[in-house]
Design a protein around this nucleic acid. Sequence first.
RNA 1: GCGGGUAUGGCGGAAUUGGCAGACGCGCCAGACUUAGGAUCUGGUGGAGAGAUCCGUGCAGGUUCAACUCCUGUUACCCGCACCA
Length: 823
Amino acid sequence: MSRYGVAIDRKWQKRWEESGIYRFNPENADKKLYCLEMFSYPSAANLHIGHWWNFGMTDCWARMHRMLGYEIFRPMGFDSFGLPAENYAIKTGVHPRDSTLASIATMQRQLREIGAIYDWDYELSTCDEEYYRWTQWIFLQLFQRDLAYRKEAPVNWCPSCQTVLANEQVHDGACERCHTLVVRRDLTQWFFKTTAYAEELTKTLDTLDWPEKTKIMQKNWIGRSEGSFIDFPLIGHQGVIRNFTTRADTLLGATYIVLAPEHPLVEIITSAEYLPAVKAYQETTAAQSELDRLTNTKEKTGVFTGGYASHPVTHQKLPVWIADYVLASYGTGSVMAVPGHDTRDYEFAQIHNLPIPRVITPVSPDIDGSLPFVEDGLLVNSGQFDGLSSLEARTKITAFLRAEEKGEETVTYRLRDWLVSRQRYWGAPVPIIHCPQCGLVPVPEDQLPVKLPYDVQFTPDGKSPLAKSDSFMHTTCPICGQAAQRDPDTLDTFVDSSWYFLRYPDNHNTLQAWDPAWINRMLPVDRYVGGPEHACMHLLYARFITKALRDMGYLQFDEPFTSLFHQGIILGADGARMSKSRGNTIAPDGYVETYGSDVLRLFLGFGFSYSDGGPWPVDEKGNPSDDGIRGIARFVDRLERWIEIISAAPGQEQQSASPLDKELNFVRHQAIKAITRDLPLYQFNTSIAQLMILLNALQKYDLEATDPNWSLLLSISEDLLRLLAPLAPHLSEELWASLGHNSSIHNEKWPVHDEQALVRDEIEYAVQINGKVRSRVLLPSDANEEVIRQEALAMAESLPETKGKTILKIIIVPKRLVNIVVA
RNA sequence: GCGGGUAUGGCGGAAUUGGCAGACGCGCCAGACUUAGGAUCUGGUGGAGAGAUCCGUGCAGGUUCAACUCCUGUUACCCGCACCA
């Protein structure tokens, strides 16, 4: 037997590939388990430890389920459009297509070296024409149902990436990718109407087996908020200012109106006298960066418009202001200001000397009257509504307004429509033709894909690179046949990734994006694994696309990912995220070369908690330490030596079951039980610990003794290898073969524990006096409470802690302990 | 500011969900075999104490026969959102 190492990895990888052992069998689709990890971006660098962490560990999970009898569908692909390849091209001159294809080839090879059970027949790549053809097709389906539309709006512009960004891609006012501060620009862009599904996206979250925090994050991002529309008629003009508020109960405290500077009514109501100030303020606001607007420590600014609106209840004349603390994109873009009961309105009113009446009073009245009271309370100074609680008042006031046709209940969302167009090259072109006659014309389906031309000048200058390609831009209108222009923008890469899981099971289909009958059998994804950073981006977009396609009749399920798990992140030895610029990356290749891929797998599984991740271990000097990996290598070594002993053992049958045999068998079944429980929960560390315990027990078995029970030892050792198989597929296969098996261990059934073997004759009870363990007593496992009580008491009598004390109480916890309370 | 999470030996991490804290491994200590050991094997290893014992799960309280686990308050760090009316 040769020692385990990378040579053995390669040997078995080759054999598995040749035999096609892990191929998905569509005939078994009724037993399918669709296990998916978020696919990755093909980067030129080698696979990093994070890939192993994500793909290697989930492979252990999938392999175990395979042994449990599931037909595993475990595809792999590449999210291959996007900015990094384009930026790399700008720097080096290597075309994004060329660098991406090269990277994919490298990654494919390295991914195979993990020894995962991917079925490469189902591979896909989003930059592939046969893929983005259908990305464009989905765009057109949305377009035809008004779920994709074009509008001019203030959008987030990244000056470094030279493109617009979706709301979700702006973090702390900066670009999610390059961390450059974004600026606002008014541009005509393509949007997907995610808001059309805001209600369902919130509601069905509850049905999902997802981490709670992720559901909460998404819920907050969607930001459902119940409240009222309240109309304030304009004075001296036609129409009303419609406001959204969650606090209709404070209506009688509204003393002025604030419009967002971008609000369309500003033009109408601004009087000549105030026009210059208003214009100036609007310009200042427009020029502000996101960061400026984020700095909410600054004073509340704003200007009076000279216009007035009438209070819908009191008919008082209220001044209308504009201020940038009111956001154009939320609610109606205007607020009824209640400075007595809203912190922001209060600050504003103080600065601009506006009245601050009080209309809500605390139920327990001992609050400082100089500050706004923002809690619910009882209504005062509110005429007919006086005395109502805030809760009642919200309903009653809104009902009153409804009767007067000045308001209604409503629900508002924080979520905004998804901006999907990008002014960059390396993405799927928007499949729309701009015709001077016919307007926006969808590219006919039979003309898809709209191919991304290879030869394009893609240095970013704020304009879409495709606009500079005459051969791409010039086309004819499919309706009228006249000369027309293509859309020069490409789609956000999140559009590509919002449906890839739908394509995997039918990835070779050239007639349609998928066969609905087939896809409805294969989906939803049973278990999705990826980082939590996608909570409000990819995971939200994928849900939206799924629901939209369902409503078009292409899918029959409501949610793409039934169950979701977030793995933690492996950090560098310095505790920071690994990055090339920090120089703290850990490369798996060296470890694989030295120890073999299974040692790396086992180490990653054993040394960290999968859901938490954590920093790479360090030595005293703070450098990355190999000690933990060597510990695993030691375990592997011990296992190999043990299996060598077993394989050379005389094979005679043994009938006797000595107490020693029984104990060993106990450990075996305990291990089976624990690993069967822990492995599906991604608790690799405790699972591997159980394997170590089992091996330790085997090695303790006295082989020098008379009549070692070889058949039992062999049987337990084979179970040990079966339990190890998902975690160390190459090693276990090699050792399995060394025991004389011709078929793969990966076709073995997962062991089932025998509850009988876990029944012990005697159980050691802890005897506690007042909650502290003072003694122990060995009792038959079937002893009834009375026996336990008697034995424990007999034992306790001899203890000094009970001398001269009265026994007050005896608590018996079956099979565990007895607690005697004395005083 | 709002929402969520985490806190356990020198280190990574366990603890059947209220029942003997520290499984398993690393490191460390001692011993064995060795010319040698950064190999292997055996034993030990939460802290204090010579000892019986006492103290120990961020901190302070509480509930309970019994608390890492439940409750109240608090601190530190991490993540997400951030003038959302």
